[in-house]
Computed example of a mutant assay.
Amino acid sequence: MATIDLNCDLGEGFGAWPMGDDAALLDVVTSANVACGFHAGDPQIMLATCRLAAERGVAIGAHVAYPDLRGFGRRPVPTTSDELFADVVYQLGALRAAARAAGTRVSYVKPHGALYNVAVRDAAQADAVVAACAAVDPQLAVLALPGSELLRAASDHGLVPVPETYADRAFQPDGTLVPRAQAGSVLHDAGEIASRVVRLVTEGQVTAVDGTEIAVDARSVCVHGDTPGAAAIAARVRAELVAAGVGLRAFV
């Protein structure tokens, strides 16, 4: 039986401001990318999210980011490699403590937003992120787009590289994501998204915005937690994967 992991960005509220339906999403996904306080999240939210994930047997990943609460981590922040290394170490330390207090552990890292998009292409930024991960825990996996500098750096530092794809994002012909500033970059129709994911998993193909067919080899599919109707979309994706004979299992 074919199997796939479903990952989702969670714990992205801050103080009194919630973001998404984490409890509902954790009933669907198999891996949770938990915000570490730099783009979203705070100590209480981090701990609560880890506890919910532990109760459901969902794997936990550190969703590390640039320090950009106002911009939700979606704006590039000028930084040196040393600064970025320290920022990732700090975020990992905080989430690892929360996970331990919740009776679970952090098993992988997935950068968020602008940091993800920069480190996919920028070797220096990717190396700083992954070197920090390796310094904290050499058993961590790194989740990122196939062919990215992040996965290359993971291999170079002896970490486990895990290729992922996206359920609700449009793709450019080179396999990268269409920037969010462009119209049509995020998909919203649950039926369309679910059908596309089933094809991604069972056929290894997705159609880019220009009609190009792209080969995709991924071990995980990301469903965004901050998209309107995210819980319903994720549930539809899971249901159609199961109906297609695909098993759902965390990659770690």
Rank of each mutant, 00 (worst) to 15 (best):
E192S: 14
A144P: 02
L26G: 04
T79A: 15
D27E: 15
T30P: 13
A126S: 05
D42V: 14
V106C: 13
A54D: 04
L95G: 06
G13W: 09
A101I: 03
N117P: 13
R75D: 01
A230E: 14
S155F: 10
V34K: 02
E240P: 09
E83Y: 00
A48W: 00
L140E: 07
G211K: 05
V221I: 15
A244E: 05
S195W: 00
E149S: 01
I214C: 11
I60W: 01
A123Q: 07
D68H: 04
F72D: 06
A16Y: 11
A230K: 03
L69F: 08
S185Q: 12
D127C: 00
S155Y: 09
R152F: 08
F85D: 13
A141H: 15
D27R: 15
D21N: 14
V64F: 06
M46A: 11
P179G: 07
L52E: 13
Q172Y: 05
D210C: 06
D226H: 07
E164K: 04
N7K: 01
A126C: 06
F251C: 08
S148K: 09
A94H: 02
A232H: 11
D87I: 03
G103D: 11
A126T: 04
T165F: 10
E192T: 15
T212K: 14
G20V: 13
T30W: 00
E149P: 02
S220E: 11
S220A: 14
A35V: 09
R196D: 06
L140T: 04
F85P: 04
L187N: 07
D42N: 15
L95W: 11
C50F: 05
D122G: 00
A194D: 04
T202L: 03
A126N: 03
A23L: 01
V201Q: 09
R238Q: 12
A167W: 04
R238H: 12
E164Q: 09
A230N: 13
C133Y: 09
A154K: 08
D210A: 05
A250S: 15
C133M: 13
R196V: 07
R121S: 08
V246G: 12
A126Q: 00
P43N: 08
G245P: 10
D137P: 10
Q205F: 10
D22T: 14
V64S: 05
G20R: 08
V186R: 15
V252E: 09
M1T: 06
D127K: 01
G225E: 07
H63P: 13
A114K: 02
I233D: 05
L248Q: 12
V34T: 07
H157T: 06
R199S: 14
L69C: 06
P163Y: 10
V178K: 12
G20E: 04
C8E: 10
G113T: 11
T202Q: 08
V77F: 03
I4Y: 01
G247N: 03
G211R: 03
V28L: 00
G71Q: 11
M1L: 05
L151A: 09
I214Q: 11
G229M: 04
A94K: 11
T212G: 14
L200D: 03
V130G: 07
A232G: 12
P173K: 10
S148G: 03
A141Y: 09
V130A: 05
M19E: 07
R180T: 11
V223I: 15
V136D: 10
G247W: 00
T212N: 12
G41R: 10
A126I: 02
P179M: 10
G20L: 03
G73I: 03
C8K: 00
G175M: 12
G61I: 01
A154V: 13
G147F: 12
L248T: 13
